[in-house]
Design a protein around this nucleic acid. Structure first.
Lengths: 148, 148
DNA sequence: TAAGATTGAATCCTCAATCTTA
DNA sequence: TAAGATTGAGGATTCAATCTTA
């Protein structure tokens, strides 16, 4: 039973991201990770977040984030600023164009997530899923991640 | 509640594969996908599988599989043979060296899966997880995949 | 020296086009 | 013509090394 549970999880873990990614890319041109970066910024009080924290919230490495920020910055969706307080730290700030891009993209993202996940699960299964992921997360992070 | 369930699943879906991948790579030099290819072959009666089916069982595209097979073949872990019956079809056959590689690698793979997933979940959660992934899988496949 | 961030090289994946055989 | 498989180009990610500031 363990085996079939694992095989199922492995299959979902590899196929679901690729399905969501290609649907979002077809609709908006954004990858899942790019969308997550913009969306996380858009949720911050000043649309601003330090890169290290942004990387954590977007489930990516700092290196990957840096490469992606270069692309997003060149499209005018955000800009990077060193913090005056401490010159070692950098924050990303979402621009108005970036905000507009998130607003235009969010429905497509939500639609895919609903169609492939949320609409298929019962309220009970959704509760179970949340409990399961909360159980697994601590073992997957060096720094504890904020799961609301 | 839906939102936090989704955020948790997204985080696990991106972090768990990368953790398993780096642990397996450190211990055996194999990526998760490469291991899966060899392991699936090793489970077949004749250590033989048609490429299209192998791609499906390994949760990858045929193109990706073809590239990976070239690497694995050059290491002597498997070989490709066109089927005599129908020259359009090709099968991959695990070699003795490939078998040995799977046998040596399996404990590391299983150890990671146990440490990061199975040992952390209760039997009830494992049942729930299996039910959830079975609910989601049909919407993620063109061809229905065999989840035992 | 250490933390945060960036860079470039090597690797891997995706996508579209192509090839082969039936 | 269609199915299965391969190929190569382009893009993205990883890894290790580097840079900057405290």
């Amino acid at each position: 039973m363990e085996r079939s549970a694992w095989i199922g999880l492995a299959a979902v873990m590899t196929r679901l991201p690729s399905v969501l990614d290609s649907e979002l890319k077809a609709a908006t041109g954004l990858s899942q990770f790019e969308y997550l970066v913009l969306a996380r910024l858009s949720e911050m009080p000043d649309r601003t977040l330090q890169l290290k924290n942004l990387a954590m919230l977007a489930n990516g490495s700092l290196s990957r984030l840096s490469h992606v920020l270069s692309r997003l910055e060149s499209r005018g969706w955000l800009r990077r600023c060193p913090l005056p307080d401490d010159g070692r730290l950098t924050v990303a700030v979402l621009t108005d164009d970036g905000w507009a891009k998130v607003v235009a993209s969010a429905p497509h993202h939500l639609g895919s997530v609903r169609a492939h996940v949320m609409d298929l699960l019962s309220p009970t299964q959704i509760r179970q899923l949340r409990s399961i992921t909360r159980t697994l997360m601590p073992g997957l992070c060096d720094t504890a991640p904020p799961v609301p």
